[in-house]
Design a protein around this nucleic acid. Structure first.
Lengths: 136, 136
DNA sequence: TCTAATTGTAATCAACATAATTACAGTTCG
DNA sequence: CGAACTGTAATTATGTTGATTACAATTAGA
């Protein structure tokens, strides 16, 4: 099963930006086409990152806590994406083998570079830009 | 479970470059610390990509088909990595919702950009460069 | 030509990851 | 107070991954 959290989170944030009012988890879930509890878990992560405010109780729900032009996809990525672009090498090295002994270090620097490349890309895309694509 | 195929494949290729002779799947598996069958499956993918030659039978095994300085991590990535950096959005859109209707297209272009950023990074790293890190 | 070593490949299994779902206590509005 | 929400835990179904077993086909070398 493929991890959809980043897709879901960007969708949620775009919907909140589009609506520019408080939306509840059921409405968001209908737009994303998933379950309200899945949405609420993502809302918690987005709130922890300071991107949204949530309100419990009647007429509750979530709304953006700052303007779409000040929120980048990197903010959303950092809020919800737990796993690196290139998986960490978890193997124990075979001690007698020079390649095996160096591999973890080598791959962790390759992975760090890849991660930074993706982060740079995402940092260049604002929520406001996505919104223009929805409208246009 | 995190996908380790790229890690495994780079390790295998580095070991082949380091040894610069034919190695069998059992020896490679010992270095990677996995199972020979897992290695053989990756060897098939690497061979399909033209990066190695394999030989069945006694004294069989795999060896590089070209010089380490002409092989980049992107070649290895393309040989074995099936899944995109950012998962494809697989949801059906809610037809009445403008955000939902545009989301798949928007995210696929975001994902394509992220993919290209990673590819550019990997294209800049040759197997020869990794080998220097093992030796140094 | 025979034998032993090795690849190629299918099938199965156990462990883990993911999202959906149910349930319900706590919160808030009116 | 009552209805409509969030926050959160627990469970379930399904997908993904790598390990493992098994064995036919291939090859080198005695």
């Amino acid at each position: 099963m493929v991890n959809q959290q980043f897709n879901f989170a960007v969708h949620i944030m775009t919907a909140l930006a589009f609506a520019h009012r408080r939306m509840d988890s059921a409405t968001l879930a209908a737009s994303v086409n998933t379950n309200p509890v899945v949405v609420r878990r993502l809302l918690l992560a987005l709130r922890r990152a300071g991107l949204i405010e949530t309100l419990a109780g009647k007429n509750g729900g979530a709304k953006l806590s700052r303007a779409p032009r000040t929120i980048t996809l990197l903010d959303i990525y950092d809020a919800v994406e737990l796993r690196p672009v290139i998986a960490k090498n978890q193997r124990r090295a075979a001690r007698h083998c020079p390649v095996s002994c160096q591999m973890k270090g080598i791959m962790s620097s390759v992975a760090a570079g890849a991660e930074e490349a993706v982060r740079k890309h995402l940092r260049g895309i604002t929520l406001a830009a996505l919104l223009r694509q929805v409208d246009g």
